[in-house]
Write a protein that binds this DNA or RNA. Sequence first.
DNA 1: TATGAATGAGAATTCATTCAT
DNA 2: AATGAATGAATTCTCATTCAT
Lengths: 191, 191, 191, 191
Amino acid sequence: MTSTKKEQILNTALRLFALQGYAETTTFQIAQEAQVTEPLLYYHFKNKEEIFTKILEKIFAEYKQMILNLPSETVTVFDKIENLIRLHLNIASMRPLESRLILAHCPAKLIENGHFCSKILQEQEQLLLDYLITCLKEGMAKKEFKKLDAVNTALVILCFINGLFRRKLFEQQHFPYEETAIVFCRNSLLL
Amino acid sequence: MTSTKKEQILNTALRLFALQGYAETTTFQIAQEAQVTEPLLYYHFKNKEEIFTKILEKIFAEYKQMILNLPSETVTVFDKIENLIRLHLNIASMRPLESRLILAHCPAKLIENGHFCSKILQEQEQLLLDYLITCLKEGMAKKEFKKLDAVNTALVILCFINGLFRRKLFEQQHFPYEETAIVFCRNSLLL
Amino acid sequence: MTSTKKEQILNTALRLFALQGYAETTTFQIAQEAQVTEPLLYYHFKNKEEIFTKILEKIFAEYKQMILNLPSETVTVFDKIENLIRLHLNIASMRPLESRLILAHCPAKLIENGHFCSKILQEQEQLLLDYLITCLKEGMAKKEFKKLDAVNTALVILCFINGLFRRKLFEQQHFPYEETAIVFCRNSLLL
Amino acid sequence: MTSTKKEQILNTALRLFALQGYAETTTFQIAQEAQVTEPLLYYHFKNKEEIFTKILEKIFAEYKQMILNLPSETVTVFDKIENLIRLHLNIASMRPLESRLILAHCPAKLIENGHFCSKILQEQEQLLLDYLITCLKEGMAKKEFKKLDAVNTALVILCFINGLFRRKLFEQQHFPYEETAIVFCRNSLLL
DNA sequence: TATGAATGAGAATTCATTCAT
DNA sequence: AATGAATGAATTCTCATTCAT
């Protein structure tokens, strides 16, 4: 119930950054579509960059929570990996704007020149890697998975998830190969 | 071996668009780094957009050739899929600027609003899909591969390649899991 | 009595457009002579064209009022025509910039390609024609004027007024033949 | 049979200057529509201004000839004035581009700042005035015309002709009041 | 919290003109 | 006589940002 205008600004900016890109979105456009005046942007945020940054922080925080909330107890070990894949595909459907924002700016804006995001991105990636490495080791220990190099395979699965995520997001129509993707991964890992 | 000024412009623009993004690159910067004057850009090209477009056309044409040049005779059917994966990872190393240009602009600039690239992108994707579907069917016919849904699996492999390509490109250090990736895919497909 | 910056812009633009022409006047020059910065032009007006348009609208509105304010009761019918002639000669003296602006742009910029002014110009002309036709008919009915074709004569008088107006405006020195012009017209019309 | 390209340039420039105005016409456009390259413009003419000047000189020379060719022997004195009026209306029909060029640039470009045309214009005007004054005096001497101030009346008739000329030129449809105009003038002058 | 007015810096693009050939 | 390549100097317009209120 608080600060509705500030939220309007953030929501509008999220949408515009996601759909048009950061550089292609003007502060005027944000103000106009958020139904506020431009100076108000500068009342609530230091500058355009900070609007972007705040949005990212929120997205990353939520994403991190989702990863941490994944069930730690599952019937099979592969279920955990399956959960991770499905989580990402769900995010692409449920949070298309947030997903686009990240993907569209990922190499160009986020990774370069010591952007604060590069740190967050690395951290997040480490989280995923740890999750996957633990799974893989557990799966091998329980003889559920083939023998494999846990670290490298975790990285490969990460690439796979990233590729699936990206495609689901930019696929205009539906994405009918979720099951195929799971099977593809399972076949690769299971003994 | 001196390049013409037109080529200097295209090379500089390629680099800047790849490293900074289209919107973040100014015509002034292109001119300056290409050691020409700004109006010369407009002598050789209609506008900034056309510089971008010409670069893309060239990249896409070369990429298409590479796909078409993949060997049609291989020892195993999986070799063909392996070749496709390795080709993309090679492109990421050998043509980092061209690769970045495409990836960095792919969702935001290329796919949207009837950009000429969306047609080329679709065409190129179809090329890859046809290649993969043919491989998968052949592999199943020869009892080399498991029984699987050729179309959906082709799409899934595409996502996989895309994910690998992207990571290799943005991985600052080396990319030591190429072999792991090949194994991951082979394990999934082979009987 | 200090004028706002917006007014300064309009006044300066009026002067420059009138003296140099629209195309020959730069936004930089307007800003400089109006003692404002260039972006302020774009804060108050959409673009250069709109500055021109707003000026024209004002001029036309005032001109229309002047026509409508002409006395409807006069001693002789010819007085009305005389009033119309004198009004235009007065406008040329009292509003030289506005007059020049219209005349200098009249064929080239105003009439062509659906410019909003072509509508206004036609409307204004119809106003004058109606005024003249009514006079002529009244003059004939009252046996003050010769028998003549009212519509065509009205058009001819319009040409005459236009020619006088233009000359008065561009005559460097004074314009000593106002009386001669009135006599010329009276001689032509009166029985 | 000589220098056809030079003529193409002049003809194209005449058309473009007449239809769009001097400032609105680019040398590129002239070159393109004349089917030559831009540097050729500078081979044949010192600069853009000179192209304009050469065109004007030709127009003025031809115009002067037309005035001088008017018959010096006529049945009535008014016939001479009628001839002058009809000549101008004919020029408007037969030489619309040349007429437009003059009218469209007359105040803004031609009269100002010591443009060479201001001299020619003045000279031409003197020619017309002399012609008219001579007629008027002759008409009065022969008791064909009323008693009037020859100089001022000549100027007034000049305005009248100018007004007719201008209207005929910019009247989209036909110009049906030529006869009315002649009658208007005759009524004014004749005893 | 909110805004109308204003601006410095710079963006893309144009244009008359020139130079080497 | 003719041109392809090139440019200095502008031109219109934009944009993130600030200031006074």
